[in-house]
Design a binder for these strands. Structure first.
Length: 145
DNA sequence: GCCAACGTTGGC
DNA sequence: GCCAACGTTGGC
């Protein structure tokens, strides 16, 4: 099973939208590298929901790949995957928080900041679980949406 | 809203 | 195939 990170701007589609709908078709990816990662995803893979272009940008929750890549009916050169809501983290992890964690300093997020779909290593994943699951508040403003 | 970084396009 | 111009992403 693989781990991923996928970005969405809150005005486009938020973790709360996903929590309400329970699942959604993840579409609109128009970057070849990101598309290739979408094609690699397998049913049961888990993905971090990253809230981009926000104050603050942050990892806010978790989802599961429930449907593997299929052509976008509107633009068949591109693909869509289907994702299901898993949970919204009690403690979101802001970009600032991520930058401060030594264990996360090799995340693709920090080195290829414009890539909207990217792999996450098992070590990074478990570190993020540790940081996001507790009640400890890293940055109080994280809780604002 | 600005702009740096990066990806894509197209002229040559 | 190079690279300048342009468009987009996303942090701030």
């Amino acid at each position: 099973m693989a781990y991923w990170l996928m970005k969405s701007e809150p005005e486009e589609y938020s973790i709360d939208d996903l929590a309400r709908e329970r699942k959604t078709a993840w579409d609109g990816v128009r970057n070849y590298q990101a598309r290739n990662f979408l094609k690699e995803m397998k049913k049961g893979d888990l993905a971090l929901f990253y809230r981009s272009n926000a104050a603050p940008s942050a990892i806010v929750g978790e989802m599961e790949i429930i449907g593997e890549a299929r052509p976008d009916p509107r633009e068949p050169d591109w693909v869509i995957v289907d994702v299901g809501f898993v949970r919204k983290y009690p403690t979101p992890l802001s970009l600032d928080d991520i930058k401060r964690q030594k264990a996360l300093d090799e995340m693709v997020l920090l080195h290829n900041s414009r890539l909207s779909v990217q792999p996450v290593s098992p070590a990074e994943w478990s570190e993020i679980q540790r940081l996001c699951s507790g009640r400890r508040v890293l940055s109080p403003e994280n809780h604002a949406l």
